[in-house]
Design a protein around this nucleic acid. Structure first.
Lengths: 115, 115
DNA sequence: ATAACACTGAACTAAATGGTTCAGTATGTA
DNA sequence: TACATACTGAACCATTTAGTTCAGTGTTAT
């Protein structure tokens, strides 16, 4: 059983902050793909697509492998576990806040606001 | 019941890609805070902290309100629902891929790789 | 052998990011 | 009234980002 050390959340959240890159993940979920096929699908130069894939790769979300002249991209084995855990933990934080009593009280005081 | 239209995932994932901003969310989970107190806690100028808070605010993750001379920051009511949903949906995509038969077969072919 | 294909790397661009300083404005306190 | 506090806005800076073009290199097909 291999151990994956997740790259910092910085890298994966940054990778996910771009719609094209989220689209690439979507696409790779339907099957592996070459750089060229992705570039076609997302209407972008090869070089541009290569950079996006590199961002995903540095984040550990995608793994690539070159055979002959084509580089095939697939979803990384580490998945989105660390990201899901951060989000879930903090989602609970958000909810806990709204249930807190002092929150309700301070809502009641909101008359005197100016912004 | 108020309806929140989530700002695009681009904004929230970008907001979450910075450790300081994730720290701010963490902190606000423990209680509301002024810009000044956050700036102190994260060793940063007021102006710098203001910018971070603005990023979180544009993403809808934080809400602020100025009363007198202090601006109080709290967690936004919309929470992290949209983000959690994206992540969870795609987490399943990742896992489905690894269970797929063609994946296993292609793993067996991995001898002839050059990168 | 030649041509087409898939990628790679360097260089350039415009805009965004994460920070700063400095000079305000508005508010609260003594 | 005078001073301190809390923020705000403009301007600047170095770095990163998202894209491009152009000129390669190596691989496959004819």
């Amino acid at each position: 059983m291999v151990q994956y050390v997740s790259p910092p959340l910085d890298l994966s959240f940054a990778a996910l902050s771009d719609a094209t890159r989220r689209g690439i993940i979507d696409q790779l979920g339907r099957g592996n793909a070459s750089i060229t096929s992705l570039a076609d699908k997302f209407q972008m130069t090869l070089t541009g697509m290569k950079k996006h894939v590199q961002v995903l790769e540095r984040a550990g979300l995608v793994v690539t492998q070159k055979v002959g002249r084509v580089r095939t991209c697939k979803l990384g084995e580490r998945g989105l576990k660390a990201e899901a855990e951060w989000i879930e933990a903090h989602r609970k934080l958000f909810e806990a806040r709204f249930e807190a009593l002092d929150e309700i009280i301070s809502e009641m005081r909101q008359e005197g606001r100016d912004d």
